[in-house]
Structures are given as C-alpha cells and as structure tokens.
Design a protein around this nucleic acid. Structure first.
Lengths: 160, 160
DNA sequence: CCCGTATGATTGACATGTCAATCAGGAGGC
DNA sequence: GCCTCCTGATTGACATGTCAATCATACGGG
C-alpha cells in the first residue's frame, strides 16, 4: 500500500513527460495549421467558424446569445467580444429578443452565410487530410479511446 | 483507383469528425486545467513556465534571446513581448550580449528561480494526475503512436 | 405593488498571440 | 573604407481570451 501510494504520487518519468509534451504540442500544431488554412481559404478564424456553424445549424439561422455560447462551449463574455468583431465585419447581426427584454438574438447575416459556405468543404477536407488520413482505423479507434479516458479523468478531478 | 481517389477526397464521416472534435477539445481542456493549477500554485502562466524551464536548464541560467525562442518553440516576436511582461514582474533580466552587440541575453532572476522551484513539482504532479494516470500502459503507448503519426503527416504536408 | 435577488448580456482592463515594419549591428565583396 | 545584404531583436497594430464589474430586466415573496 505504501508502495502504491508512493507510485501514485511519483512524478512522471522522462518517457511519460515526452508523450505528454508531444501530445499537447501536436494538438496545438494541428490547430494552428487548420486555422491557417481556414484563414487563407475563407478569411475566417476558427472562432468565426464555430459561431457560423452553430448559427447555420440553428432553426431560422438565429440563436439567443446564451444558447450560442453553449453551442460553441464558450464563456458568454468571450462570445460577446467575438460577436462584436463579427458584427463589425458584417458576418452576423444582433437584435433584441421579443420574449425577454434582457436577451439578444444573434442572426446569421447573408455575408456570414456565404463565408461559411465557402469555408466549410475546404475545412472538412483539411480535417480529413491532417487528422483522419494520418491514422489507420486502429489508430483512429485508439485515439478515440485515449481521449475518452482523458476526458473522463478530467471530469472526475474537476468536480470534487 | 478511381474509388481510391474518391475515398481519399471524401469528407470525414460523422464518427471521424466526432473523434477529431473530441481530440482537439480534450487537448484544449487539459491545457486549460493545467494552466489554472499552475496559476493557483505559483502565479505563473504556461508561457512563464516554459521560459523559466528553459532558463533553468541553461548553462549559467542565461540564454541568448534566439536560443530561448528555439528552446520554447516560439516566434521571436512572441518571446520579446512575453519577456517584456516577465521583466516587469522581476522574473528575468535582460543584458546586452558581449560577443554580438545586436544580441540580448536573458537571465533568470532570483525571483524567477524561486517561482519556478515552487511551480515545478506541483506542475509535474498535475501532468501525472491529469494525463499519465488517466491512461493505462497500452493507452499511453497508443497515444504516443497516434501523436507520432499525426506529427509525421503534419510535417509531410507542410513542406511541399 | 415593491423589494431583494437571480439572470442575460455587455464592458473594461489586461494577458496572450500573430503579422508586418523597423532598427541596429555584423559580414562579405569591391 | 563603403555599400549591400543578412541577422537579432524589438515594436506597433490588432485579434483573441479571461476575469471581475456593471447594468438592465425578470421573477418570486411579502
């Protein structure tokens, strides 16, 4: 038991640390490359893409601000800042909500819809090239398994 | 062949896209959680930690600015901005380089060394808890394999 | 109806990151 | 020595992200 405790408390080995660093740096490099392609294909940032995707899938191409935040998995203040920038560029509009005077509705503008259409297929193609095509079926399944385990651990440790 | 080409060009399936999103979001969530723990343990950001780690390992606890950038894997301008902030907080100092008047040497300040010592063990412990302990040995090996494959593909596609 | 509190959203201050421009100092050819 | 080009590093403008504070409105108890 003492040994068990000691083992649980030990610091990562050099090999384990290397895997960790490779993992986190690779994820980061992938995000950066995807972002660069998205930008050059469509002048959209990944944030823009998330917002436009959520709005495109929404009924009537409009969402309450807080629903949009949930759909993107963002904090509200982050969304608010980002919507300000997107509104300046004409990608979305904001209107007061009819049923709750505190609320705002975010509406996909025509220019935003066009930009999203232009971005979508090249972006998905890039995901395929850079991620899916890099892995054989076993590796893809292993990746899914690993991220599930990581997510589970993360959620277990975040609550208590 | 036609079929092969078609398959290569196809967009990701829903399942493949889900793995991709889980992968990228989990990596992001891990980074965020590690950053939060680092901050509360030591008032250091991940960027601060990278810089202090590189300086700690350097001979004489000092490095040329561009060597430091390489060690961190950062662009020079990013490093320059970050060093400005760290210098304001007394974590590092900058001196002119004796052998090249263009150059600058970055020096680990006493306060930076202290902060790094305070941060180091809890940070490594957090990596163990959140990453290493979440995976059994097979999963850890699979993770290493997957990120290697992703990195290889990324580098293959970035050059041409 | 009115008050206290909760909720939806925005704002301001600041940390972080990228890109392009700048600036000073080396290095080689003449 | 001088001119040109290369290199090391910083800077400014701006996009992005977090946190705490703010503000207006909704809502429920009395």
């Amino acid at each position: 038991m003492v040994q068990n405790t000691a083992r649980r408390r030990a610091l990562p080995t050099v090999d384990e640390l290397r895997v960790w660093r490779d993992f986190i740096e690779t994820a980061e490099a992938l995000r950066t490359e995807l972002a660069a392609r998205l930008q050059s294909d469509s002048s959209l940032s990944p944030g823009d893409y998330s917002v436009l995707l959520a709005l495109s899938e929404a009924h009537g191409a409009r969402l309450r601000s807080s629903e949009l935040a949930t759909a993107c998995g963002w904090e509200r203040s982050r969304l608010s800042h980002h919507l300000g920038r997107m509104e300046r560029r004409g990608l979305i509009r904001r209107e007061d909500c009819a049923t709750d005077n505190r609320g705002a509705e975010v509406i996909l503008a025509a220019e935003g819809a066009t930009a999203f259409r232009r971005a979508s297929v090249p972006h998905l193609r890039a995901v395929r090239e850079l991620f899916v095509d890099a892995l054989n079926p076993k590796q893809l399944a292993a990746a899914a398994d690993v991220v599930t385990a990581l997510r589970t651990q993360l959620e277990a440790l975040r609550e208590p």
